[in-house]
Each structure stands twice: as C-alpha cells, then as structure tokens.
Design a protein around this nucleic acid. Sequence first.
RNA 1: GUCUCCUUCGUCUAGGGGUCUAGGACACCGCCCUUUCACGGCGGCAACACGGGUUCAAAUCCCGUAGGAGAUGCCA
Length: 462
Amino acid sequence: MSVIVRFAPSPTGVLHIGSVRTALFNWLYARHCSGKFLLRIEDTDKLRSTEENAKAILRILKWLQLDWDGEPVIQSTRIERHKEVANKLVEQGKAYFCNCSPEELALKKEAAIKEGKSYKYDGKCRNNTTHYIEGKSVIRLKTDESGETVLDDLVQGRVVTENSQLDDLVLLRSDGTPTFMLSVVVDDHDMGVTHVIRGDDHLTNTFRHIQIYRSCGWDVPRFGHIPLIYGPDGTKLSKRHGAASAQDYIDLGYLQEAIFNYLLRLGWSHGDDEIISREDAVKWFDICDVGKSPARFDMVKLQNLNAHYMKARNNESLLASIKPFLNTELSEMQTNRILLGLDGLKSRAKTLVDLVKSALIYVEAPEAYDEVCAKYLMPENVELLKDMIKIIQSEESIQQDILLERAKALANSRDVKLVEIAQALRSALCGYLVSPSVFEIIEILGKDESIQRIRRFIDLDM
RNA sequence: GUCUCCUUCGUCUAGGGGUCUAGGACACCGCCCUUUCACGGCGGCAACACGGGUUCAAAUCCCGUAGGAGAUGCCA
C-alpha cells in the first residue's frame, strides 16, 4: 500500500510555525516512503477564511520547497459531499436530528460545571424520532456508548479512551454546514489518505474521528500525532511569545534551509547529527522516530543554524536573499562591492537582517557616526588618518595585505598600536567600530571612495 | 472538574536493563588565533523530576506522587 499523507491548513489566519513543522513531517514522510503529499485548504469557516491567507500558505510551502502532489483540494467545494454523508448516516440510523438549542445546551453545561461534574451532551434527542427543522436541527452522530476505542498512534503509541467519555458530536450545523469533524474524515477518506500526521492537539478528536469512520464503514487510516511546539515558557507557542508565524521568521531574515533543519531537529533526531541536508532528511526520516514530548522553541539555536547556512551559501545566492530586505535598488558598482564583501560580512551575521545592515558600508558612506568614534578625531589620530590617506594614494595596488603591511609600519614609526589605526579607519569608513577587516573594506571600496570617506570623517565636528 | 499525554544538562536531544564516572549540539565560561567584532580551533561548567518496587544489575521495566501541556465548541 503506498503512503498518502496530507497537510490540511485552514486559511483563517497566518501559517503558524508549528503548522509548518506538521507540513514538514508530512512531506518528509511522503518523500521517504515515495508516497504522496497532498494539500487541502480547510476554508469552511467562511467568516474567518481569506484568499490572501490561503495564498500565503502556498507561498510559504513553496519557499520551504515542500512541494505537494496534485492540485490542492479546496474543502469548501466539497460541502455537498459532506452533507450527503451526514444525511446517509441519518438514513442508516447512525446519526440523528437534534433540536436542542445552543442556549439550552449552554445552560446545561453551566449547571454541570457548577455542580463540579464533567459536561457532555446528554443525548436528549438521540432516541426521539425528531424531524428536521430548517435552521434549527443539527445532525449528531450516535457515538458508541460503551466499550473503548483504541488508537495505535505512530508517535504516541497505544492510547485508549472509554467510549463513555465521548458525546454525540455534531456533524452538520443548524445552518446546514458540515463541522470540521465530519469534513476532515470525509475528505481524508475520499482523498485516500493512509496516514494522518497532525498536531497533538487533535489527539482527543481522533477518537471522535474514528467513530465517524466506523459509522461510515470506512477503513481507519494510521494516525501520528506530533507534539506541539512550546514557547520558552512551556506553553503553546503563540504571538505572545514574539514570532509565531512562518512569515515572521522569513521577515526576521531566516533562510529556508535553516528553518527546515531547525524544525526537523525539534522532536526528531538522527544520532548526533545536527546539520542535516534535505536529502539525508528524506532518507532518514520516519514518523515513528518522532519524540513524544513537546519541545520549546529556541530562537538562539535557530540563529546558530541560520549563521551556519549563511556561511554555506555562495555569495550570489545570498545576495538574492538579501535584496528583499534592502529598500533601494543596487547599482552595478554597489552590487559588485557587496559580492566582494560578503565573505567578510557573512561570518559576522546571524540573520539576513544583520547581514543587510552590515552590507550598507558597501552601499553608501556612513550617514551617522557612533559617539565612540569621536575619539579618533583627536589630533594624533587625525595625523594617522592623514598618513593613511597618503599611503592609499601612493600605493599602486591597494591590495589588503599590502595595506596591512604599510599600516603596521606606520604604527611602528609613530609608536602606536595597529589597533589605533584600524579603529580610526573603521570609524571613518563605517561610522562604527565593529566590522570586517578595514583593509579589506578599503580594497573593496577602492582608492577614491575610501579617501573620500576618511576626509569627510576628518572634517567632522563631533 | 473530567479525559489524554508528557518529564535526561538552561534549551534541542542520544540512550530502550550491564558498554553511563550519561554522549552530541546550541547557549554560557576560559584559552588560542587576531586590526575591532565575528568565524575557526582547543578546553570547561552543566541533566536522568521525586518516592517506592521488580532485578545480581534500572536513566532504561512496573506502580504511585509532583509538575507541565493538550482536549473537553453548532472553531479548525
């Protein structure tokens, strides 16, 4: 039997980073098994679903290179089919019309809570031969009242629930629309899904889903409930923790391969391997190896991985990734300077945002200077800078090694440390005191631009 | 409240009865490299939630306890 999995996000909001991991695990499992990875957009909540959200989901999956098979299934187009299944269950006596009003049920629930009892629908309409009332009736499933339902979960292991815990869930709402419980089961069945890999928050729902499968007489797929991702405080990762959506991480300047690797290692591992390529991930991944315990999201570790993957990228592709973060178009000269400077820049950055900030030295002269730079405007430092201007002017080649040697000689003759000259130059060239090698920067900027920046700095009144 | 699940360094994890004086990675600390800061190299700190069993032997199996999380919708 070939494996068919699916990712079924609802476009009611932005794509959560936890959902991305669910998508990733589904994709990996499908590719590992040479199976199919299907996509279904669960847009039945028409009030909250938007076209933009749906598009954003597809865009992010593409960005992460999680390619899906076939066309995405749009759940809202399948409502008639869902209704058909619900009505058939009524005909077969496996479901029934319930005319209890939401208000009535809310009261019962409130009363139950007051008494400290657990609430579940009391099945008032279950044995009535109630007739359908337009706009009022819902269809409820006749859930097994006794016995137990066993779930042999691929991740969580064997989980058993007493059927008495389950109540008669709503299949079709009073407005005639299907609930998630119904839709998800019907669609998974119709799409031929063999393995349902989803977040752990669905685990208890699964017992209800199994009831529906059985009532319909359908094969129950295998389930794998992956643990949720927590924030640093150990509760479900959310907006409150800062970045929670996939787009947030893109905007923060994380590379696709870093997010892939990070999410992969959250709850899954392969011996001592930390840096794992897509190919190896596909080769090694198995849903059974996913851990049962939830993991906390660690931004710092993501940053470390991101730094690694930035260093691993070639400069052309890094430049392409940086461009969306720049608010100006680059001239050819600026582009070339950045390309040359990227080696020195990328080992110093954690994110693309960092990288862009530091790359600005190759785009334009400093707009402002850090206060600490003022120190290098003292007369003796200005003298050093003037000497450096002479050196830069006189050298035929301003190759960084040569400049370094000349600067060392200058330091010697003036009886100062090289660091004094370097920091003075850095102030002039960058406007701050942390950067790649100043001699490299001079080489890349060229004689004219370098001298111009130094002169401008010397003339400053700080 | 009820149901379900989870618990190894700060974090992600390896481990599945003896090879565990518990391994790796991130973070942190120190040293080296060094024109700054990074990178890189070397080293260090640091964990089996607790209590009972089972066993010659338990991080590993069982039972409790504690803590945490999720579910408990005519949301998905």
